[in-house]
């Protein structure tokens, strides 16, 4: 329509816009981009998660690495490859908080309401933050895997297997970010959102964290069997230690998808509650 070159720009522009609304993908990429730049402008939000994951990896490997020979299921295998998935999962889960923090920040500073006054799609508001969160946690997880490689990790499934581990972590982290986002939308409170992400704690520790499930017993075994993270860890470990085991991978993927779907619905309900006019 050549609005911009028109000399009577002001008026015709206004009337043109009334019928205009940007395509969903444009909105989504704009929302993703803004969440990304603001996240990278607060490195304090990203660095601790990274340090914690790296720290755990080093400490577990250093203190338990030599003990692995005594674990029946692990005899002759690399404990590093066994413990790395724990670090990967905890990095993905803690990285999942990024999206929640991004949303709660815009709610607190009022920018969220400002955006609600534009024709922006509510879904783009939500997904933009989650995709940005996924990018950040993907990078975090890649760094953790990189550390593992530097420590001498030799995955059975090679580079493809590494990709699969990263992919599972991304799926888990992004799904789980729905939980943080849901709390952010419900409470609009940064502290509540922060403490909500501590759910990753029981999820990463009430599972086959240090030894295979077969070596667990009692209540922790029951907890581990109920915890979807267990199946994800098994899938990652099988990729790094054994090879391509279809059934183990399928179970891991399924657990991951189920958890993600649950968390994502939680986020969507939160979005509806937040944007409903009262």
């Amino acid at each position: 329509m050549g609005v911009l070159s028109n000399t009577s720009t002001k008026v015709s522009f206004a009337s043109d816009l009334r019928s205009a609304r940007s395509p969903f993908l444009v909105q989504l990429s704009a929302m993703t981009w803004r969440a990304l730049i603001t996240t990278f402008r607060t490195p304090a939000a990203v660095i601790p998660g990274l340090i914690i994951s790296g720290f755990f990896l080093l400490v577990y490997e250093a203190s338990l690495g030599n003990a692995s020979g005594f674990l029946p299921g692990l005899a002759g295998k690399s404990y590093l490859a066994f413990i790395l998935p724990v670090s990967v999962v905890s990095s993905a889960l803690s990285g999942a908080g990024v999206a929640g923090q991004s949303i709660v920040r815009t709610i607190e500073n009022g920018y969220f309401d400002k955006l609600l006054l534009t024709p922006v799609s509510r879904a783009a508001l939500l997904l933009g933050a989650m995709i940005a969160g996924a990018i950040v946690l993907g990078l975090q997880t890649a760094v953790v895997i990189g550390m593992g490689l530097l420590l001498g990790l030799q995955p059975e499934t090679g580079i493809l297997g590494i990709g699969a581990v990263l992919g599972l972590a991304l799926l888990l982290g992004t799904g789980f970010s729905g939980f943080a986002v849901g709390i952010a939308l419900r409470t609009g409170n940064a502290a509540a959102t922060q403490s909500g992400t501590f759910l990753f704690f029981p999820l990463t520790f009430l599972t086959a964290t240090f030894v295979p499930v077969s070596l667990l017993s009692g209540w922790i075994k029951t907890a581990a069997e109920l915890n979807p993270i267990t199946y994800l860890l098994e899938a990652m470990r099988s990729l790094l230690l054994v090879g391509w085991e279809g059934d183990v991978l399928a179970r891991g993927l399924l657990a991951c998808l189920a958890l993600s779907a649950l968390m994502l619905s939680f986020a969507l309900v939160g979005l509806r509650a937040r944007t409903r006019r009262r």
Partner: peptide, 26 residues
């Protein structure tokens, strides 16, 4: 323009205005 100014302190003016324009179909 609401009484509570809704600005994101971690963004720059150009970025906020550009996004606002994009939301309105530009």
């Amino acid at each position: 323009a609401l009484q509570e100014i809704g600005l994101d302190p971690l963004m720059k003016s150009m970025e906020m205005l550009t996004i606002q324009g994009q939301m309105f179909g530009m």
